[in-house]
């Protein structure tokens, strides 16, 4: 674990600078922006987005995509509401929905590890199945919000003006950060993401960890979905809107704090900087397409940034892996072969 010693380096903190820049621009552009409520809104509306991004982050570190996080969250949220309306106690409904999220992650893991389907396809398929299940469970009618007091208090209880849900996000982030940076589990996940076969030959339980990462992602998605539903009420569509910003944040986050590595705090910085951008733009203009457009552009820009960053840190001739790198073999391209970035470092 490289320690991130604070400095003014643009390479690590560009996101924070961008956020400050956003705040300055929007403050000048509209008097509506720099108010307490803006920040309260951003904090609570992005708390769940942050959780979903963390759910995406964990399997991403060991090289697995989880595209089912959005559908999973949505499904878990609806199930919680349906159960509460059926007369379940708050705690039972809450735990059951989160357990459901974990189970979905378990199924993802089964498909990826046992059936050897690529995670991209597996979770895309599961995502579609979950959308179908949501319709079945609710009989295609958006259920009424539960009347339980505890249900709404869970997220809307206020601490110093902020809704408590933001606290949950930071507790979760702290836990995941600890797991990824300070435990053998994190070490193994990163090793698997770096080179799966080499990790297997070093005795790492490659399949087991990939599976665990997907289960964790499922559980966190379920939790996030339940919290979101408690915060804003049941809906069929919120899951889909969470997926893209989550991926954008994870990739953008990998250019922050510890460039070249997917990391928790970078991801959160990215989530909030993107949110400030969207929020500011929405205050300036009320067109409906803004946040979708902004998130799409941000995702592509984030991945482009992240890819360029890694290729500079670790020159790799081609994303298609036509050839393996060699510190001495630099000039394949000179014979006209595959596209390639020259190493900037002298051989050690």
């Amino acid at each position: 674990m490289r320690k991130s010693i604070p400095n003014l380096g643009m390479d690590r903190f560009s996101g924070i600078y961008l956020g400050i820049l956003f705040i300055l621009i929007f403050t000048i552009a509209t008097p509506l922006f720099l108010t307490e409520s803006t920040f309260h809104v951003i904090a609570s509306s992005q708390a769940v987005a942050g959780m979903i991004a963390i759910a995406v982050l964990i399997p991403m570190i060991c090289g697995q995509f989880d595209l089912s996080v959005g559908a999973n969250a949505n499904f878990a949220g609806l199930v919680a509401v349906v159960l509460l309306n059926d007369g379940w106690s708050f705690l039972a409904a809450f735990l059951a929905s989160v357990a459901l999220g974990l189970f979905v992650g378990f199924v993802n893991g089964f498909i990826v590890v046992r059936l050897k389907v690529s995670s991209f396809i597996a979770t895309l398929g599961v995502s579609s199945i979950l959308t179908a299940l949501a319709v079945i469970v609710t009989e295609s009618i958006v259920p009424p919000p539960p009347s339980s007091q505890a249900w709404t208090k869970m997220t809307q209880f206020e601490v110093g003006g902020f809704q408590i849900i933001i606290v949950y996000l930071f507790v979760l982030a702290l836990l995941v950060w600890w797991m990824l940076e300070w435990t053998p589990a994190g070490r193994y996940l990163r090793a698997i993401g770096g080179n799966t076969e080499a990790s297997r030959l070093a005795g790492v339980h490659v399949d087991r960890w990939a599976w665990i990462s997907l289960v964790l992602a499922g559980g966190i998605s379920g939790l996030g979905g339940v919290l979101y539903t408690s915060l804003t009420g049941p809906s069929f569509t919120f899951g889909a809107t969470l997926l893209l910003p989550a991926f954008a944040a994870v990739f953008l986050g990998s250019t922050q704090l510890q460039p070249g590595r997917f990391n928790v705090w970078g991801t959160l910085i990215a989530i909030f900087v993107l949110a400030i951008g969207v929020q500011g733009l929405q205050l300036l203009s009320s067109v409906l397409w803004l946040s979708a457009m902004f998130n799409g552009v941000a995702l592509i820009a984030a991945v482009a940034l992240a890819v360029n960053r890694t290729s500079r840190a670790n020159p790799r001739p081609s994303r298609l892996r036509l050839n393996q790198t060699d510190e001495d073999a630099v000039i394949n391209a000179a014979s006209g072969t595959v596209g390639q970035e020259g190493s900037k470092q002298p051989a050690v």
Partner: peptide, 12 residues
């Protein structure tokens, strides 16, 4: 007219 062939041949 400078040509280079590496240990990694870049063949598909």
């Amino acid at each position: 007219g400078c040509r280079f062939v590496h240990q990694d041949l870049g063949l598909i």
